[in-house]
């Protein structure tokens, strides 16, 4: 295929894929009557950006949603790494009775989607009065068998001599995990971090179950609420809200594109 034709085809497809973003931003700048009058125009006639974005910022606790999303993703990631890194190290480098059982449990856990334990977890959280807390958002996702699997694979390629040397230097196993193994596992850790944050930032299923109301709403829930409660047919304001909520992760992606693509394609197993 001629390379010109190829580029043309790619450009056309790319434009098609960008269409939702283009129209989203374009609509967020238009006044409502204009949206009804001239749906095809890309650039607004009268700039209604201030009205639309102003309305969102006035009526919606945007900062709170973003903060909630940050706390949830940060908390989940922190505990996932805290649990998975030592376990991954032990499975890869230590010999102990029951290791095969633990690894078998990890492999089995990989097969079960997070939706399956959701019901009983909800019952337990509601029974203990934990619904609507950060804990409810964070706790159920703190164990990632996928992370254990990933770190085990990564640590297996760590030279045994490095660990022997650390032991000879007088380090205990816990010190080896955090001071020898982890500094060598940054590629796996970043890849997993990106995967985890993207997955949980965008997740709607569990936050919808675990919280009600705005106080603990994540960005995904925030958009949902704004759409159903406030926006009605005010698409300009709705698109403004969507633009604001989509922006953080999209900007992060554009800044660290290569890491994102690598992170998500190497950890694609669970995606």
């Amino acid at each position: 295929m001629a390379s010109g034709l190829r580029l043309l085809l790619l450009a056309a497809l790319g434009l098609l894929f960008m269409a939702p973003y283009i129209w989203m931003v374009s609509a967020s700048l238009k006044a409502t009557d204009e949206l009804f009058r001239a749906p095809m125009a890309l650039l607004p006639e009268g700039w209604a950006a201030i009205t639309n974005y102003g309305r969102v910022l006035r009526e919606v606790p945007v900062a709170l949603y973003l903060w909630n999303g940050l706390v949830m993703c940060g908390g989940i990631l922190f505990f996932q790494l805290l649990f998975a890194i030592p376990a991954g190290y032990a499975l890869a480098k230590l010999r102990f009775v029951g290791r095969e059982w633990v690894f078998g449990a990890v492999m089995l856990g990989l097969l079960v989607p997070a939706h399956v334990p959701a019901l009983p977890l909800y019952v337990a959280l509601s029974g203990s009065g934990w619904l609507n807390t950060y804990a409810a958002l964070i706790v159920p996702s703190t164990i990632s068998v996928f992370a254990i699997f990933l770190f085990r694979q990564f640590f297996r390629s760590l030279p045994q001599d490095l660990i022997h040397a650390a032991r000879l230097d007088g380090m205990g196993e816990a010190a080896i995990v955090w001071r020898v193994a982890l500094p060598n596992a940054w590629p796996a850790a970043t890849a997993f971090a990106i995967f985890s944050v993207v997955a949980h930032w965008n997740d709607l299923f569990w936050p919808l179950i675990a919280t009600t109301g705005h106080a603990r709403a994540t960005p995904a829930l925030g958009v949902l609420y704004f759409r159903t409660e406030e926006a009605g047919d005010d698409f300009g304001a709705l698109m403004a809200a969507c633009t604001i909520m989509t922006a953080p992760l999209v900007l992060a992606f554009l800044l660290a594109q290569r890491r994102f693509v690598e992170g998500i394609s190497t950890t694609g197993l669970k995606g």
Partner: peptide, 18 residues
Amino acid sequence: RAVFFLPVVSLTVAMAAA
């Protein structure tokens, strides 16, 4: 690659609204 990958990292709920 970035263009076609962008939807993967975008907030699904917001893009659904779009």
